[in-house]
Simulated assay, not measured.
Amino acid sequence: MARATPATAALERAGIAFKLHEYDYDPNAPRIGLQAAEALGIAPERLLKTLMAKAGTNIVCVLAPSDKEVSLKRLAAAAGAKEAALLPPAEAERVTGYHVGGISPLGQRKRAASFIERAALSHATVLVNGGRRGLQIEIAPAALVEAIDAKAADLC
Rank of each mutant, 00 (worst) to 15 (best):
A140P: 05
Q35L: 13
S104T: 06
R132S: 03
H123L: 06
P89C: 11
I32M: 13
A112N: 15
L47W: 00
Q35P: 05
L34D: 07
H99C: 10
G102T: 02
S114V: 06
V95S: 12
G131S: 14
A7G: 09
A77F: 03
A14T: 05
K54W: 03
P105K: 04
A112Q: 15
Q136R: 14
G134R: 05
A90L: 13
E22W: 08
L135Y: 04
G101C: 02
A64V: 13
A53V: 10
E91Q: 15
A153S: 14
V62A: 03
A39Q: 06
A4V: 09
G131K: 10
G97D: 10
P30D: 11
R3K: 13
K82S: 13
L127E: 00
A79F: 02
G107A: 06
M1N: 13
E38W: 07
L47A: 00
A17W: 05
G130K: 03
N58W: 06
E22L: 13
E45T: 07
E146G: 06
K49C: 00
I116Q: 00
F115I: 04
G130S: 08
T5C: 06
K19M: 14
P88M: 10
K151D: 13
L144Q: 03
I42D: 01
Y25V: 09
I148F: 11
A64I: 12
R46W: 04
A124D: 12
T57H: 07
R13G: 12
K68F: 07
H99P: 08
A14Y: 10
T5E: 07
T50A: 11
A150I: 04
D154N: 07
L20S: 12
K151H: 11
A76K: 02
P44E: 11
P105M: 08
L121H: 09
A78K: 00
K19A: 15
A37R: 00
N58D: 15
I32G: 01
S122V: 08
V95D: 14
R109I: 08
K82D: 15
A39N: 09
A9W: 06
A113Y: 08
